[in-house]
């Protein structure tokens, strides 16, 4: 018998002990899976089911209508608009926040006397409730707020109008929410990048320095960028999933307005269910959104392989 196999635990414990291990494992995962079945898996199937029904739980007015919900949702211009709107939002926010998070990480990864406290302060928005932070940002973008009275009079790089009422402007309300979310989520991803940076063995940097990789750009191009590919994929995917489900901030700050400028799919889904009582359409819209997320993320199959293997 192979010596290594003999001392490995599977064979060291008899087959009955192996059964004990399996039974313990199932007992350990049972509570989780009970909760997952009740509050995740079954709801997913049930949502799928009601997406083919006219479903009104309050008046027991329920009947099968096939693909009608999907078709009427897809034919609804405000839904299509909300999808395009959120894709535009996602593209802008994920791109900028990923770069910002990376550069914040490069900066705050330096262990200097000031780094710990400053990093803790920068991280504050990432733990604050989106509702609370949104309310503070109503002030930031209000006509009497921070942007108009502190930022634009001194720095106006993009030639933005002075004294604009940002959140009531169809042009600027959505970019304002983008700016706020880039500002508040970049620090979270910064921490993920810092973890990625610290996982790079210092020997690699030393060896690269001997090979002449010394400038910041070269270090970025030949070390950080390729070594942080997993981290970047994670940051992008988490960013995508979060952005596409934008809701709290829009609900609190603009409620989808002005004139639908900040209308996003979750607003549509919420309104269908809770204002119009058309749960079937709500469910159908959710599954279309699900499909969008799958399309955007499942292209990264290698990533999920690595994540499960890890």
């Amino acid at each position: 018998m192979n010596l290594a196999a003999a001392t490995s635990f599977k064979s060291l414990l008899g087959s009955s002990s192996r059964r004990v291990v399996s039974l313990t494992a199932y007992a350990f995962i049972a509570p989780l899976f009970i909760m997952l079945f009740a509050f995740v898996f079954f709801p997913v199937f049930f949502s799928f089911y009601i997406s083919f029904y006219h479903y009104d739980p309050f008046y027991h007015n329920i009947y099968f209508i096939g693909l009608t919900n999907y078709l009427s949702v897809l034919r609804n211009p405000s839904f299509i608009f909300s999808i395009l709107n959120v894709l535009y939002y996602t593209f802008v926010v994920v791109t900028i926040q990923t770069f910002l998070a990376f550069f914040l990480a490069l900066l705050f990864n330096n262990k200097l006397p000031a780094s710990r406290t400053t990093r803790a302060l920068v991280f504050l928005p990432a733990i604050s409730s989106p509702v609370a932070f949104s309310i503070i940002f109503i002030w930031v973008f209000s006509p009497q707020g921070l942007v108009n009275s502190f930022i634009l009079p001194y720095i106006n790089i993009f030639g933005l109008p002075a004294n604009e009422n940002w959140l009531l402007s169809t042009t600027y309300a959505f970019p304002a929410i983008m700016a706020m979310n880039i500002f508040s989520t970049a620090p979270y991803f910064m921490v993920i990048y810092i973890a990625g940076l610290q996982a790079i063995p210092s020997q690699i940097l030393e060896a690269a320095a001997l090979d002449g990789v010394k400038s910041s750009w070269h270090k970025f191009r030949y070390i950080y960028f390729p070594m942080l590919r997993f981290t970047t994929t994670l940051v992008v995917i988490l960013g995508l999933i979060g952005c596409i489900q934008l809701f709290d901030q829009v609900f609190v700050i603009t409620d989808g307005g002005p004139a639908h400028a900040t209308y996003v799919p979750l607003m549509f889904i919420y309104n269908r269910a809770f204002i119009y009582d058309i749960f079937g359409q709500s469910a159908a819209a959710s599954f279309i959104l699900f499909a969008v997320i799958m399309l955007l993320t499942l292209t990264q199959r290698r990533f999920f392989k690595e994540m499960t293997w890890a």
Partner: peptide, 11 residues
């Protein structure tokens, strides 16, 4: 990966 409303509507 499951978007929140897919679950929440049923819940």
């Amino acid at each position: 990966m499951i978007p929140f409303p897919v679950i929440t509507i049923s819940e």
